[in-house]
Design a binder for these strands. Sequence first.
DNA 1: GCAGTGATCATA
DNA 2: ATGATCACTGCC
Length: 175
Amino acid sequence: MSTTSQVLEQSFFARPALVVARELLGKHLVRRWRNREQAVVVNEVEAYVGPHDLACHGRFGRTPRTEVMYGPAGHWYVYLCYGMHWMLNIVTDGEDWPAAVLFRGAGEFTGPGKLTKALHIDRRLNALPADEEAGLWLENRGLRVRRSQIAQTPRIGVDYAGTWKDKPYRFMLKS
DNA sequence: GCAGTGATCATA
DNA sequence: ATGATCACTGCC
């Protein structure tokens, strides 16, 4: 049993989105909000791998919204979807390469919109580094995830993405 | 199956 | 200024 708890640094995220996504399973997403701290185990993520990925927001190039994806890894990318739901992503890869991992589920919260609502996440976190000062960060608390515990499927809600809609870039912890 | 909801971006 | 689109959710 591990007693250590390591905050994930930028170097963890400055790798390909597919690698980061897989390794985020079993890590703890920690939220500090109004002097309370809540930690949930990440159990569902999706990788958006770059400008050639027809499901990735970076496919249209730099815009005000996607600018943060072109910046350094380990920063939050938060945007509003369908006028109601905040989507939480962490920027991956190197600078000038738009890629990110979407958090779809953690702890008892299933669905990206329900997760952000439960953790009080909105655009105030956009473009902030994932650290304790921001009030939202990731930790390795020593949970082991075997490859046999990971399920991989196509991503959700990207039917517009041509052949990229079928890429198995969604990673889930089997229960 | 589909309405709700509003930011974002292209077009003008 | 306008219109289309949207990495979702909840209710029919």
